Amino acid sequence: MSVKKQPVLETRALRVGYAEAPVCAPVDLAVRPGELWAIIGPNGSGKSTLLRALLGVLAPLSGKVLAFGRDVDERERDFRAKVVGILDDDAYFPGLTAREHLVLTARGHGVAGAGEVVDQLLDRFGLAAQSGAMPTELSSGQRRRLLLAAGFARPREVLVLDEPEQRLDPGMRADLARILVEEAGRGAAVVFATHDPELVERTGARGLLVGDDECLRLGHQAALDALARVR
């Protein structure tokens, strides 16, 4: 008989917002190893705010966020060693090339064979030809790929991504879906906010529909149906 795995990321009656004003209804969610969850809802519904709280970047108004059974604290070494967040902000070292940026990120997180790992990521994210370019020389879509590659250059058991499909061409969006499925297949928990039904369909993700009155956990097909309504 199989034993249900314990959640690696969990919220309990979590309220998120700014200046004591919640942006959505309380969230109750348990994410286990190997699961993919899509956070869906209209613009302004609180998806990005929720992700920031999951990563410990934003303090909850009330309720709890737990990672591996402990209160989330982005300052803790163990948390940073297991949880990767990729938000909708370009973040790079302006004085380094794309490859140097990724190598520094990998080495800073203790990745063995950082150079080889980075070369594989550059190829996987279609940046091999731009490895010697400065980030400021990259297009918007290429900088997005660099941001994603930096997340995958780190050890990770939990991935939290804010609309990772943004600024990607259709081919790279399809590749991204395969990458996320592979991550879940090796046991990582994946949570991503999205407006893209194809990304949800290709990953087979379940959904959390964020709203003012309630936040609903949905199966895969119900998530697709809900996403079609709120786009």
Rank of each mutant, 00 (worst) to 15 (best):
A106S: 12
V72R: 01
G185N: 14
G63Q: 09
L159N: 03
Q166C: 02
G69A: 06
V160H: 03
E182G: 11
R77A: 12
R167D: 15
A81N: 14
H220T: 06
R231V: 06
L216H: 12
A129H: 10
F192C: 04
F152M: 05
G211I: 11
E10Y: 13
R217P: 09
R202Q: 13
L87H: 13
K82I: 02
A228C: 07
L121A: 04
M1E: 11
A188I: 10
P7F: 11
K82M: 07
T11D: 06
A112C: 00
H101P: 00
V16W: 09
G115E: 14
I86P: 01
G41S: 06
G85L: 08
L138C: 00
A25R: 12
A30F: 04
Q142V: 02
V210C: 02
A223K: 00
A149Q: 07
V230C: 14
V117A: 11
A149G: 12
A53N: 01
A91L: 13
G44D: 05
L55M: 08
A13Q: 15
L218C: 10
F93T: 03
G207C: 05
R202W: 11
G171M: 07
T11Y: 08
T97E: 04
L121E: 05
G63H: 10
M1N: 12
D175V: 11
P94V: 01
T194P: 08
P33C: 09
L104I: 04
V31G: 07
A129D: 14
Q142D: 03
V3L: 15
T97P: 03
L102R: 06
G187K: 07
V3M: 14
R70E: 15
D73R: 03
A149E: 08
A106G: 10
P197Y: 02
R143G: 01
G41M: 09
L51M: 09
A174L: 13
L61Y: 11
R229K: 13
T11E: 09
A67V: 15
M172D: 04
E198C: 03
G126A: 06
L36K: 08
R178D: 15
G108S: 08
L122H: 04
P22M: 09
P42V: 14
R75K: 08
G113M: 07
E182F: 10
P94L: 02
G115L: 03
A114F: 07
V111E: 03
A149Y: 06
G44V: 03
L159C: 02
A59F: 10
G41H: 05
T136Y: 13
R154S: 00
P26I: 15
P60H: 08
L161M: 04
D90H: 11
L168N: 02
R186P: 12
A112D: 13
E74R: 06
G46P: 12
L209A: 15
L146P: 01
A30S: 15
A184Q: 08
L96P: 04
E76T: 01
G126K: 01
P197C: 02
T136R: 12
E35V: 04
S2C: 02
T97W: 04
L161Q: 03
G85S: 07
L121F: 13
E10Q: 15
D123P: 00
G17E: 10
P170F: 08
I86Q: 02
A30R: 15
